[in-house]
């Protein structure tokens, strides 16, 4: 099973998915991220899926789960770079990722996290 690497840039954790995700990798990523957010005290998580060709319900649910986990640690999650074909398919599938923030690309995702971070009292 391949593991998805998690990078730390300032107060943000960056997850760039470059592999064809199998379910075990998805579960491992959720665990790794929870651990990393708690150990680093990151205020934001960016998941870059610009290289991802398909998102099925299992992978889609991961975004929501990661968002919920990071919220428990007072961190925000942004999913960036979803391809048009993937977005159309997700809508047809009936998965709208309620509550997960999205951005067109990494740069805008980081900007959103920056804005949200400034609003924090900590």
């Amino acid at each position: 099973m391949e593991r998805v690497p998690i990078l730390k840039i300032g107060g943000v954790l960056l997850v760039s998915i470059q592999i064809d995700l199998q379910d075990q990798s998805v579960l491992a990523l959720q665990e790794d991220l929870a651990e990393k957010i708690s150990s680093t005290g990151a205020h934001g998580v960016v998941i870059d899926i610009s290289a991802v060709e398909i998102v099925d319900s299992f992978i889609g649910r991961m975004f929501a789960t990661i968002a919920s986990i990071s919220r428990l640690f007072d961190a925000d999650t942004v999913v960036v770079g979803m391809r048009p074909a993937v977005a159309i398919t997700l809508v047809e599938l009936g998965l709208t990722l309620g509550g997960v923030r999205t951005a067109l690309d990494l740069e805008r995702g980081m900007k959103i996290l920056g804005q949200l971070g400034r609003g924090r009292t900590t």
Binding site: P84, I88, V91, E92, L97, T102, D105, R108
Partner: peptide
Amino acid sequence: KTVVAARLMGA
């Protein structure tokens, strides 16, 4: 659906 898909993409 387009509006929802665009939203998923961050637009």
